[in-house]
């Protein structure tokens, strides 16, 4: 995956349901500033909501980092969800549709991948979880 240029970043600490709201509102504001159409704002905000929710559910706390990126003259937004929680022992399994360890909550990662253009996850048992997702302006 290309790195893309990472500009100034916004960090939102995640520890409660109120932070989930803050993160998605910040993300929406940044994407709006970047000129994404309304339909994309909804997708980006929804993806951030699910990523932040996963942090609260599985790791209790972590952070969402929002940043503008650029590649080949295209602008985009990068959403990074980072925690030092228990991690995901089997990432492949977690990426299968319908898989969730907490029952009906957090349909989660495969859904987030569908909402965004690029998706990358690094995790392992005891290693925490980092999810990087990008959306490009068309």
């Amino acid at each position: 995956m290309d790195k893309g240029r990472v500009g100034d970043e916004t960090r939102v600490p995640i520890g409660s349901d109120v932070d989930i709201l803050t993160a998605r509102q910040r993300g929406r504001a940044l994407a709006s500033e970047l000129g994404f159409p309304n339909s994309s704002l909804v997708l980006i905000a929804t993806a951030i909501s699910e990523l932040a929710r996963n942090i609260v559910l599985y790791a209790k706390r972590g952070e969402i980092v929002l940043g503008r990126i650029e590649r080949d003259g295209h602008q985009g937004i990068q959403v990074t969800a980072r925690d030092e929680g228990p991690g995901i022992p089997d990432v492949g399994l977690a990426m299968q549709s319908g898989y969730s360890t907490s029952g009906s909550l957090g349909l989660g990662l495969p859904g987030v991948r569908r909402l965004m253009d690029e998706f990358e996850i690094v995790s392992g048992a005891g290693k925490g979880t980092t999810v990087m997702a990008k959306k490009w302006k068309r």
Partner: peptide
């Protein structure tokens, strides 16, 4: 439900 919200929900399987 707004059209964009409906689209995002379907993507998430909701």
């Amino acid at each position: 439900f707004q059209p964009e919200v409906a689209f995002a929900m379907v993507q998430l399987g909701l």
